[in-house]
Amino acid sequence: MSLQVLPLAITMMAGPQIMSAIILTTTSRAVRVSLAFLLGVLIAVVVGVTITRSLFALLGSNVSLGKDSDNSSVGKIIQYVLVALLVLLILRDYRTRATSEPPKWLEALMEADPRRAFKTGFIMILVMPSDVMVMLTVGANLEQHHAGVGSAAAFIAATVLIAALPLLALLLFRRRAQRAMPAVRDWMNSHSWVVNIICCLIFIVIILV
């Protein structure tokens, strides 16, 4: 797998995903629910990459994805389609910024138990459009390099590590983190549209470079 897709792990956890991880560290059972959330994220990424790799393997048996340098290859066309979709998401987020609000289920995470935290991590990765697009990109990259899912281990590990940052901060800087996390959570909730746009821009740059 090309190291070019490794930074996409940042996009995987950007937006509501990292907000969920932060919120879980402010609950009464922060460590337990955060670990359950991370397990859900891990399993979901492995499942997602496996599915997308298999899809592109089927596609590759009938249609060549082409070389990275071939602008007319199927792989490049898929990348251009992803960029177009991201631009549309940016325009939507900017147009609705005045009424933008975080999802209601984020508030419910304040009382989440480990089971709910696991389900949140698992389902979120598999249904978030940005995460689906990232995993499609990883799957296409694996097919282009004739690599198996195991070659995406660094990407999977990076995604889980980023998801674990709020928990690691809590464990390393417990008192300071306990004071800072609620403020970070509140800022991200009130500026969710900014977070989404930044993530989309990062994703576009990574795809086109």
Rank of each mutant, 00 (worst) to 15 (best):
F155E: 00
V31E: 08
M128V: 14
T27W: 13
H191C: 05
L172Q: 01
S190E: 15
M181E: 06
L85D: 08
H145F: 14
A157F: 03
M135C: 08
S69N: 03
N189T: 14
V63A: 08
I202Q: 02
I162Y: 05
I197G: 06
S190G: 03
G40H: 03
A152S: 11
V195N: 04
R32F: 06
I10H: 07
V74G: 02
S61R: 06
L59G: 11
R95C: 05
V138Q: 09
Y94M: 14
R175G: 07
K119I: 15
M188Q: 12
E101W: 00
M12K: 07
S2L: 10
G139L: 04
L89I: 07
A169V: 02
Q144N: 12
M188P: 04
P7R: 05
N62R: 09
K119E: 12
V132D: 05
W187T: 13
P166F: 01
L42N: 03
P129M: 13
Q4D: 09
A44I: 05
G48I: 02
G66C: 04
L106W: 04
S64C: 01
Q17K: 04
T25S: 13
T137K: 12
A44Q: 01
N196M: 13
I206E: 09
S190T: 14
V194R: 11
F37T: 02
P182S: 10
V81W: 04
R115P: 00
W105C: 05
V47W: 02
I125F: 11
P166N: 04
L38Y: 00
M188V: 10
G15L: 07
W193R: 11
L86N: 11
I23D: 04
W193I: 07
D68M: 09
L8C: 10
N141V: 13
V87K: 09
F122S: 07
F37Y: 15
R176F: 09
L86C: 10
D93L: 10
L91R: 11
R116P: 01
I202D: 03
T137D: 08
L82H: 02
T159D: 00
C199Y: 01
E101L: 14
L38V: 10
P182V: 10
L6I: 14
V160L: 03
G121V: 05
F56K: 00
S61H: 07
A157N: 00
I23Q: 14
S190Q: 12
Q4M: 12
R53K: 15
A108Y: 10
G139F: 00
A163C: 09
R92L: 08
L106M: 15
L142E: 02
T26P: 02
G66N: 03
D93F: 15
V87N: 05
D131K: 01
L59K: 01
I125R: 00
A21P: 07
R95F: 12
G40Y: 00
G121F: 05
A14T: 06
S73N: 06
A108F: 08
G121D: 06
L91S: 11
L126H: 13
R174N: 11
F118E: 03
W193K: 05
V5W: 10
